[in-house]
Every structure is written in structure tokens, then in C-alpha cells.
Computed example of a mutant assay.
Amino acid sequence: MAEELVLYSNPMSRGRIARWMLEEAGVPYSVEWLTFEGSIKAPDYLAVNPMGKVPAIRHGETIVTEAAAICAYMADAFPEAGLAPPTNRRGDYYRWLFFAAGPLETAVSLKAFGMEVPQERQRALGCGSYGTALDTLSFAVTRHPYIAGDTFTAADVYVGSHISWGLQFGSLEDRPEFRSYWDRLKDRPAHIKATTLDDEEMHRQLQAAKG
């Protein structure tokens, strides 16, 4: 009997990354929706993620938090989906997955909050500068059709989500190479289905909030 797979999420969060990844894996799962002002800080959920943030997944007795980790875990837990390269070809896969989770997100967040690191202090940060992080991302998305080579992987779910949001909300420079990369991902059936499901739940929650 297959182990139960549960996604803890909110449709207005990074939980959308995990939902897309679960749909790419093509395995059954259920969703527990959490509210930012209530259940996400409740003791039951803090036992799952003490940070009180989403997404998280529970797969049998295994709990995984952090969207990049969920992508990597799902690819390994369900190898039949073909979402990770062979072990001896995972250099770019790990490199860009965790570049996006670390330096890229840090640089973009600092920029969004108007925090500029003095040039002489940039080497103390893993992200360097916003410009350096974006130039590195440009390099990453122009080397191959997908982030880790010629085949779509879990790393594309994560990197692609960051690029999609960055272009949508203006936190990334609108570079042609970012558009071209995202155009190769956005019409994947799993992405369309995941987006539709999360949009439906988002609208339901917004209507409920209006009473």
C-alpha cells in the first residue's frame, strides 16, 4: 500500500512550487490548506514545521519543508517520473536548484526591500550583488534548453517558479533569456493543472473572507 502523501500549503505562497512538483510527479496526494493568521501557527502545524511557514509535505512518516528540498525529495522518492538526472550527471541539477534557493532568492529579496549592500561588503554575502546574481541566472538559462541539460527536471520547477514570479511582480529584470526559458515551461500540463487548482482555492478563500 502506498504511503500517504500530504501537501501543506496556502494558494498565495511558495506552496505553488510544491503543488507543481507533485503534479509533475503524477502521484496521488491530498492538501491541507492553512491560513496565515490562524492554522499556520497552530501547535499541530508547528509540529510539522516549527517555522510556521509553507510549503511542507508529509510522505508516510517523512516530513520535508522548504520548496527546493521538496522538489529534490519528490524527484528521488518517485524516480519513475524521470525528474532527476542520473546521479553522475547531477552537477548542474544541484548547482542551479540550490543557487536559486540561496543566492538568487537572497539577492532578489534584498533588492525588493530596498536594501543595498555596499560593494566592499558584497563578498561577505553568498549572493554577492543583485546584478551578479541575475547575470549568473542568465548564464544558467542559456546553456541548455533546460536548467540541467536537454531534459526537464525538478530543478526547472524551482528555478522556473522564481523566474515566473520575478517577471510577474517585477522583482527580476525583464531579460529576453528569462522570457525564453519560462516560455519553455509555462505550458506544461502539470504546471497548468497546479496553477488552476491553486487559483480555484485562492478565489474560494478570498470569497470566504468577504463573507
Rank of each mutant, 00 (worst) to 15 (best):
G128R: 12
M12Y: 09
Y8F: 15
P43W: 01
T106N: 10
F78P: 13
G91C: 02
A75I: 06
A81M: 10
E66A: 03
F139K: 12
E200V: 07
W33H: 06
G26Q: 00
S109R: 11
I57V: 13
V108Q: 04
Q205R: 15
M74I: 15
T151A: 13
S30A: 05
Q207G: 12
L22D: 04
G149F: 07
A194W: 07
T196S: 11
A25S: 08
A77V: 06
S129K: 12
F152E: 00
E23K: 13
A67P: 12
T153D: 05
S129E: 06
A133Y: 12
D76Q: 10
E23N: 07
L172A: 02
R95H: 12
G82F: 08
V157I: 09
E37M: 12
E105K: 10
P85T: 00
A18D: 00
A72H: 13
F36S: 02
F139I: 12
A75G: 06
Y93N: 01
R123H: 14
T106G: 08
H144R: 06
R184E: 00
W96N: 02
Y130P: 14
A107G: 10
E177Y: 12
A18H: 02
Y29V: 11
E116W: 12
L104H: 05
V108R: 08
L22P: 14
I70N: 02
E201C: 10
P189A: 00
A190E: 02
G170P: 14
S39I: 06
S30I: 09
H191T: 03
P176S: 00
S161V: 01
S164K: 07
T106V: 14
D174A: 14
F178T: 01
K53E: 01
T195D: 05
D183F: 10
G166H: 03
P86F: 00
S9M: 06
A42V: 08
I70Y: 07
E4C: 06
I192M: 13
T106R: 12
A148T: 08
A2H: 04
A190L: 09
L22G: 07
M21N: 03
A155E: 01
E66W: 09
P50G: 00
N49M: 05
A124C: 07
V108H: 06
K186Q: 13
K53S: 01
F99V: 04
T62K: 14
P55A: 00
P103L: 00
G128V: 14
F169D: 01
L172W: 07
E200N: 08
N49G: 05
D44Q: 14
G126R: 05
A133G: 11
W96V: 03
Y130S: 03
N10V: 04
Y158V: 05
A47T: 04
I147H: 09
L83I: 03
T35S: 10
L97C: 03
I63P: 13
V48F: 10
R16P: 13
A42Q: 08
V48S: 03
A148I: 09
A148R: 11
G114R: 08
